[in-house]
C-alpha cells in the first residue's frame, strides 16, 4: 500500500523567513481569537466580586462553584447528555458513513447526510421541537440526547467518510475472500481500519454536545437544565466571577478532549 499523508502534526511545513511585517496580522488575529478567552480565565482568579475590576488574585470562586447545587446538577445533566449522545451519534454516524460508501454513489445523498451539521442550529432546534411535540414526546434530557444525536451523527459521518475515502476498498473483499461473513468483516476489518476517524468523531461530538446551547434550550424539559442553560440563566443577572471560573473549567475539558483526540488518532494511525 502506498504511504499516505497522515493527519496531525506529523509533517511540518517549512517556516517562511523574512517579510517580518506579515507577522503583525498573524499576531493580531491570534489576539482577536484568544483575548476574550484569556480575559475570562484571568478574571476567574479575580478576588473582587465585581467582574470587571481586578482587585487581586484569589482561588475562591472555584470552591464556590463546587458548592452551587444548581451548577452541579447542570453539569451532571450535561455529562449524561454528552455521553449518551456521543455513543448514539458514533454508532449511527459510522453506520451511515459505511452504508453511504458501500451502497450509493450519490453525491447528493452524501451531502444530505451531512446537512444537520451545517444547517443553522436554530432551524434544526425548532424542527426537532415541532417533531417531538407532535409525536407526544415529553421534553426531557432524553429528547436533548435525541437532538444531539441528530447533529452529532452528521459530524461523525463526515469524519468517517473522509477516512473511508483513504482506505483500500479491497481490505473488506480480502476478508470475505478468506472466509469471513459480512458481520465478522465489519467488526474485525472495517471498524478497526476506521478506528482513528471513529474516535476523532466521537470526541468531536462530545465537545460539541458539552457546550451546545440553542438546540438544548429548545428540546430540554424545564426541570432538567443542561449546564449551558444554567449558565445562561445565571448570566441574565450579570456575569459573576463564578461564571468565569465555570467557563475556565469548560475550556480545560474541551482542550483536554481535543488534545486526547489528536493523540489517539495519531497513536492508532501508527499501528
Amino acid at each position: 500500500m502506498p504511504d499516505r499523508t497522515r493527519t496531525g502534526t506529523g509533517t511540518r511545513r517549512p517556516v517562511e523567513r523574512g517579510l517580518g511585517w506579515l507577522r503583525l496580522p498573524l499576531i493580531g488575529a491570534f489576539g482577536f481569537l484568544y483575548l476574550p478567552i484569556a480575559v475570562l480565565v484571568v478574571m476567574s482568579f479575580n478576588a473582587s466580586s465585581i467582574p470587571f475590576v481586578w482587585t487581586g488574585f484569589s482561588l475562591q470562586w472555584y470552591p464556590t462553584l463546587a458548592s452551587n447545587p444548581q451548577v452541579l446538577q447542570g453539569l451532571l445533566n450535561t455529562l449524561v447528555v454528552a455521553v449518551a449522545a456521543t455513543v448514539g451519534a458514533t454508532i449511527l454516524g459510522t453506520l451511515l458513513a459505511v452504508g453511504l460508501a458501500r451502497y450509493t454513489r450519490s453525491v447528493l445523498l452524501e451531502a444530505y447526510s451531512l446537512a444537520p451539521a451545517i444547517i443553522p442550529d436554530l432551524v434544526l432546534a425548532i424542527g426537532l421541537l415541532i417533531l417531538f411535540t407532535s409525536i407526544g414526546l415529553t421534553l426531557s434530557l432524553f429528547s436533548v440526547v435525541l437532538a444531539h444525536i441528530v447533529f452529532g451523527m452528521a459530524f461523525v459521518a463526515a469524519v468517517v467518510t473522509a477516512r473511508i475515502g483513504q482506505t483500500d476498498p479491497s481490505l473488506e473483499e480480502a476478508s470475505r475472500d478468506l472466509g469471513a461473513t459480512g458481520p465478522t468483516t465489519f467488526l474485525r476489518i472495517t471498524v478497526p481500519s476506521l478506528a482513528p476517524a471513529i474516535i476523532a468523531g466521537a470526541l468531536l461530538v462530545f465537545t460539541l454536545s458539552l457546550d451546545e446551547f440553542v438546540i438544548a434550550f429548545f428540546t430540554d424539559g424545564p426541570r432538567t437544565p443542561t449546564l449551558p442553560i444554567v449558565i445562561y440563566s445565571m448570566v441574565r443577572f450579570g456575569v459573576t466571577p463564578e461564571i468565569n471560573a465555570l467557563g475556565a473549567l469548560l475550556l480545560l475539558v474541551s482542550f483536554t478532549v481535543v488534545l486526547a483526540a489528536q493523540r489517539i488518532t495519531r497513536l492508532t494511525d501508527a499501528l
Partner: peptide
C-alpha cells in the same frame, strides 16, 4: 456461492494486507 464460501482464494493487486 458467496465469496466467503468459495474454495478459491484471490491475491489482490494491492495485496490488501490488514494494516492493523
Amino acid at each position: 456461492l458467496p465469496p466467503n464460501r468459495r474454495p478459491v482464494n484471490l491475491m489482490f493487486q494491492s495485496y490488501a494486507l490488514f494494516p492493523h
